[in-house]
Amino acid sequence: MSVFQLNVNGKVHSVDIDGNMPLLWAIRDVLGLKGTKFGCGVAQCGACTVHLDGKAARSCITDVGVAALSKIKTIEGLSYDGSHPCQKMWVELGVPQCGFCQPGQIMTAAALLDEHPHPDDATIDAYMSGNICRCGTYPRIKDAIRRLGGSATS
């Protein structure tokens, strides 16, 4: 066990935990932020996506010791009220079905749009291919990102 300073959503938390604990479990079990989801544990599904210094990262395979070096943002920190453009567009288009994967989808999409404000389809495909949705909301996710990036045709 070691003490780590975790900067999560702009607030610094001091936690005394196993440094090999994946960030996901520190966020969920120790800090009690439940918006970041466990879907696979091996970076296959993206449900656990958070931002480390603004870049999308899979928290299920990121050791907490490594994450402590970065500013961490979770879905709770993306906006306080659901006013982030991605969240608003997700609601407008009725993207979620069960919604379990959507915090991860939105965190990935937000990072994508930060890096590429006007992504083409190939860029959207490449970025979003790491986030699985078993309900099959992909068409609406793609539509939402296209609209946000100004490339919507419909």
């Binding site: 969920r28 439940k34 918006g35 659901g82 991605c86 997700w90 009725g94 979620p96």
Partner: peptide, 20 residues
């Protein structure tokens, strides 16, 4: 209406693993 949409995109909806 889509009652749960806003909670879902904010990560606020309570799924099984979120019960504390």
């Amino acid at each position: 209406p889509f009652y749960d949409a806003l909670d879902l995109v904010r990560g606020k909806s309570v799924f099984g693993a979120d019960v504390e």
